[in-house]
């Protein structure tokens, strides 16, 4: 389940932002390493919502996400809550 979520998150980054697979490491900072900005995050949220069929936009926890690992944990929490 955990690996599957990580794979799906990586797919979002590859499909929506054309980021190379080798750059998608769990410790990669979404802003500093991958280069997303606040406007890109809006696109990311839309893509993640579509991919995982969850509501992310209004969740306050999204503000604390910095790395892919954080994102993966967040999605897992959301999935377990739903």
């Amino acid at each position: 389940m955990s690996d599957q979520i990580e794979t799906m998150i990586n797919e979002v980054f590859e499909e929506s932002f054309e980021i190379e697979k080798e750059d998608l490491k769990p410790e990669a900072n979404i802003f500093e390493d991958l280069g997303l900005d606040s406007l890109d995050v809006v696109d990311l949220v839309v893509a993640l919502q579509k991919k995982f069929s969850v509501e992310i936009r209004t969740d306050e926890r999204i503000k604390d996400i910095r790395t892919l690992e954080d994102l993966s944990k967040f999605i897992k929490e959301l999935k377990s809550e739903s």
Partner: peptide
């Protein structure tokens, strides 16, 4: 290019 790819392309 996507918005993201566009800025990366110029960079």
């Amino acid at each position: 290019l996507s918005n993201f790819k566009f800025k990366q392309y110029i960079r």
